[in-house]
């Protein structure tokens, strides 16, 4: 964050519902999370939902989002944000319940919760940030790790299997909102966020949005924004096609 940047300039770059005095945020330089969160925030602003949002954040890098917004927010346990939001929404039908989870939390430790929330068509929005690995704990293999990627727990290269979650969710729930966006295409991502929020605001049931995101630290592309962008657009988006499902 350049020192000469004023609070006013920061404000204008951020959604109105973002909290100013927790910025600069705690994510690494170049991280995709703030891009995902900003897209969510702008969508919330546009729809005027700020006061009704119950924002659940998972453990992993997503926990750093706990003070990103002026939302009623709760940090849960690793993988358990979906059931907390499910229970909360059942208890308060006025709530716009949003679970913010990483790919480890959603697809590994919390996979059972996610899948069953989709099967039950629970009226919550689940946003999953997919960066292809466990970032907070030091770059271990995730269900989204690309075949051949060398990560801490697959030092000789990850195996050929990985999860395509939106495709699965669509299979178990034909009525759900299901999409995959990417941080590098913000207007599209913001529209997906809006549509997903509208889906639950209209009580249409489960909304699921996976967002392809970058992790320069664990991708070891910290020195080059171009390299980060190349992995994101040419490797990540190739393995995980974006769009609506």
């Amino acid at each position: 964050m350049p020192e000469e940047m004023s609070k006013l300039e920061i404000r204008s770059a951020l959604p109105k519902c973002a909290r100013l005095d927790s910025k600069p945020h705690l994510f690494c330089p170049g991280c995709g999370h703030p891009e995902v969160l900003k897209a969510l925030g702008f969508a919330v602003d546009e729809l005027g939902l700020q006061r009704r949002i119950a924002f659940g954040v998972d453990i992993g890098c997503s926990l750093l989002a706990w003070d990103f917004f002026d939302f009623d927010t709760v940090e849960t346990h690793h993988g358990r944000t979906v059931p907390v939001m499910v229970g909360l929404r059942l208890g308060n039908p006025e709530a716009i319940a949003v679970a913010y989870v990483g790919d480890g939390g959603a697809y590994a430790i919390g996979a059972g919760h996610l899948l069953n929330a989709a099967i039950r068509n629970d009226n919550i929005l689940t946003i999953v940030v997919n960066n292809g690995l466990y970032a907070m704990t030091g770059g271990q293999e995730a269900p989204t790790t690309h075949p051949g990627w060398k990560v801490k727990t697959a030092p000789y290269g990850a195996d050929q299997y990985y999860i395509k979650a939106p495709e699965i969710i669509r299979n178990v729930n034909p009525a759900a909102f299901v999409a995959r966006g990417i941080t590098s295409r913000q207007p599209e991502l913001r529209q997906l966020m809006k549509d997903a929020l509208q889906h639950i605001n209209g009580n249409h049931g489960f909304a699921f949005l996976e967002v392809l995101s970058q992790c320069p630290l664990n991708w070891k592309t910290m020195d080059s924004a171009e390299a980060t962008f190349r992995v994101l657009e040419q490797e990540h988006a190739k393995l995980f096609p974006t769009g609506r499902f």
Binding site: P83, G87, N116
Partner: peptide, 25 residues
């Protein structure tokens, strides 16, 4: 409110969600 969860971990955390919503859950 009644919800049968996917397992006891899910039930326990749904319970937390219910309490956060102010339910005598």
């Amino acid at each position: 409110v009644f919800q049968q969860a996917e397992d006891e971990i899910g039930a326990g955390f749904m319970l937390i969600g219910g309490v956060l919503a102010g339910r005598r859950a």
